[in-house]
Every structure is written in structure tokens, then in C-alpha cells.
């Protein structure tokens, strides 16, 4: 579900958490949690602002299959 975090690449800087306009992402104890994936707007702010390229966007079947 969008967005998907590559925890190997993620440096836990927290920028995506700070910038997400829908309060979807939570950085806690240095681990990035996609807590409310259903509330993602697919704006791509997290991916654009990630300094390590750790974010990819995946679309749910609800969007791709209809």
C-alpha cells in the first residue's frame, strides 16, 4: 500500500513524517511507520522529499483494477 518504505535505505530523518499532508506517516523510535495507508492522497511529497530514495509508491488494486 502507498507509500512503501525501504527500511534498508531509510535513514530515519523524519522529513516524510513532517511533510505528509495527511498525517499518514509516523517516525517512532527511528522506525518509519505507514500508519494510515488508506488516507494517502498519493501526492508524492514523501517520495520527492526523501533524501535517500527510500520511498516507492504502490497503488492498491482498488485504483488499478477498476
Amino acid at each position: 500500500m502507498p507509500p512503501v518504505i525501504d527500511h534498508e535505505k531509510c535513514n530515519a530523518c523524519g522529513i516524510c513524517d513532517e511533510h505528509c499532508p495527511l498525517d499518514v506517516l509516523y517516525l517512532e523510535d527511528d522506525v518509519l511507520d505507514v500508519r494510515y495507508p488508506y488516507e494517502c492522497w498519493h501526492c508524492g511529497a514523501c517520495r520527492q522529499d526523501c533524501p535517500t530514495g527510500a520511498v516507492t509508491i504502490e497503488f492498491p488494486p482498488m485504483m488499478l483494477s477498476v
Partner: peptide, 13 residues
């Protein structure tokens, strides 16, 4: 309500 860096209608571009 969010963060002014990425908020509102043009948040992502």
C-alpha cells in the same frame, strides 16, 4: 493543520 512545506492543493506540485 499539516506542514506549510507540503500542504494544501499544490502540496505535491
Amino acid at each position: 493543520k499539516a506542514n506549510i512545506n507540503r500542504s494544501g492543493a499544490i502540496a505535491g506540485g
